[in-house]
């Protein structure tokens, strides 16, 4: 007997992500899902961003790693609320893991929640967690061919941070080429060129985050 069942396989996760999203909306919280390959600079970017914005915005962080709580410890040093998720092998965070952290946070006391996903350029793009948008980092040491090789993440993200530009003199990587390839896949992508080491380019990013929080807030008021 043939049974026709047109169903999204990730429907269960999508539903939980939607429920998470409803809670974030109700709490007037901007949430972004930060993704990159391992070591591209997600935690470094968060450290910088928290230092720059913590006077203006109340920030919370969820750290996703397969193992260890080192990233959460780095964030906790900044004196902001952070919860570590250890996926115990899974290469991405999903809606359920995010929901399990809610009891650890007081969302009324937050403006911005950042989810640092597991370092991986493939899988996290497929699993929604309830975020307003996805943000991704590509570091220049990874090479300019990454947009073409991992199109899904580049297509799904709203903003791309090209990190470690302080290393450009030492690597054969063209930022122009990364931008060109990225805009082919995602013509609407906002792109920043940054160095978390020297701080170059970060002011523009901070301002962009401030604007996003503001825009989201006024959109919800309507």
């Amino acid at each position: 007997m043939k049974v026709s069942v047109v169903k999204n396989i990730l429907e269960a996760n999508d539903r939980i992500a939607q429920e998470n999203r409803a809670i974030f909306d109700e709490k007037d919280l901007l949430v972004f899902n930060l993704m990159s390959s391992p070591g591209a600079g997600k935690t470094s970017l968060l450290e910088k961003t928290i230092d720059a914005l913590k006077e203006d915005l109340k920030i919370g962080v969820i750290e996703g790693d397969i193992q260890s709580s080192q990233d959460a410890e780095r964030i906790a040093e900044k004196g902001i609320p952070v919860v570590q998720i250890n996926t115990g092998g899974a290469c991405h965070l999903d809606g359920n893991m995010i929901r399990d952290t809610f009891k650890e946070f007081d969302f009324d006391a937050l403006d911005l929640l950042v989810v640092e996903n597991v370092g991986n350029l493939v899988c996290p793009a497929e699993f929604k967690v309830g975020e307003d948008f996805k943000a991704m980092i590509l570091s220049v040491t990874e090479g300019e061919d990454k947009p073409a090789k991992y199109p899904l993440m580049f297509h799904e993200s709203k903003v791309l941070l090209i990190n470690k530009i302080d290393l450009l003199p030492y690597v054969d990587c063209s930022v122009e080429k990364i931008k060109e390839e990225t805009l082919k896949i995602n013509p609407g992508m906002t792109i920043f060129e940054i160095s978390c080491k020297t701080g170059e380019g970060l002011d523009a990013w901070y301002n962009w985050v401030r604007e996003e929080v503001k825009t989201r807030r006024s959109a919800r008021k309507q």
Partner: peptide, 23 residues
């Protein structure tokens, strides 16, 4: 290897559908 979680979700759907159709 997120294929593992995807297959798990797939199996959940399959089992539910089979129950529904008494298969």
């Amino acid at each position: 290897m997120h294929e593992m979680s995807i297959v798990q979700s797939l199996l959940d759907i399959i089992q539910e559908e089979m129950r529904k159709h008494n298969a």
